Amino acid sequence: MASSRKWASVISSIASFIYFLVIFLQIPLFRVPCRGGICKTPMEVTSSQLISCQLFPAVAVKALLYPGAIANAFLNNKPIPLYNNLPKLYKFTVFNTAPAISDLQRLEVVAGSYLSVAGAVFGLMKPGRMSLFGILLVIWGLAREILMRKSAHVFGKDIYIYPAMSIAMVSAFLSVKKDVRKIVRSCKGRHVHKAKHL
């Protein structure tokens, strides 16, 4: 019993850390129109919303964006961007004139992105279901829009789900300690059952 809890705790902690890296290093998970143009990560969707609505100080939003900007600079062999130039780099300085309509159309993606970012932060302290709910909401919103466009025979490349979404989904699921404990117990139960029959 104690060992299954220990294994669940270890797996959950590792999964939460992987999920945190995926979100904060801004690994592209999807492609969707947002207030700043095209967003590819929950962090970009959340940051564009926070900057345009002025809910948080710009300094806090830049702090959220900076780790991903540094990671992208390293991957693309570009110089590390200046902290003050982040809104311009992400094209969050000029927004579309009618953003509210697109936000309402993609409410699940916006809400899911908020939950994904918050879940990544809180998951490091105490893993929970927030990350999983966030990713599920984002996937549901994107899938719904893709299906609606196909049914209306509207095809475009502005909405897309990248393969890296599966990494985010699995790590978000495995970050839930109770669910991991159930999986570990069922695996141990099968192992004991097989050992008895040998």
Results as ranks from 00 to 15, higher is better:
M1C: 14
M1E: 15
S3P: 00
S4W: 00
R5L: 14
R5Q: 11
K6E: 15
K6N: 13
I11E: 05
S12C: 06
I14L: 12
I14Y: 13
I14H: 10
A15L: 04
I18F: 14
I18Q: 04
Y19M: 10
F24A: 03
F24P: 00
L25H: 11
C34E: 11
C34D: 14
G37C: 10
G37R: 01
I38C: 03
C39A: 13
P42T: 10
E44R: 12
E44I: 11
S47Y: 02
S47I: 10
I51Q: 04
I51E: 06
S52I: 08
L55M: 09
L55Q: 06
L55F: 12
F56H: 01
F56T: 11
A60L: 13
P67E: 09
G68A: 07
A69C: 07
A71R: 11
A71T: 10
N72H: 09
N72R: 11
A73T: 11
A73F: 08
L75R: 11
I80S: 12
P81E: 12
L82N: 13
N84D: 13
K91L: 10
K91A: 12
T93C: 12
F95S: 03
T97G: 04
A100L: 05
A100Y: 02
S102E: 12
S102F: 08
Q105P: 00
Q105C: 02
L115C: 13
V117F: 11
G119Y: 05
A120T: 03
V121L: 14
F122A: 02
G123K: 06
L124D: 02
M130G: 00
M130L: 14
S131R: 04
L132H: 07
I135W: 04
L136N: 02
L136F: 05
L137M: 10
L137P: 00
W140P: 00
L142V: 06
E145I: 04
L147F: 15
L147T: 14
M148E: 12
R149E: 15
K150A: 13
K150H: 13
S151V: 04
A152V: 01
A152I: 02
F155T: 13
K157H: 11
Y162T: 04
S166D: 01
S166L: 10
A168Y: 03
M169Y: 04
K178V: 14
D179V: 07
D179P: 01
V180K: 07
V184S: 07
R185H: 01
C187Y: 05
C187P: 00
K188F: 05
G189D: 14
R190F: 03
A195S: 09
A195Q: 07
K196W: 03
K196E: 11
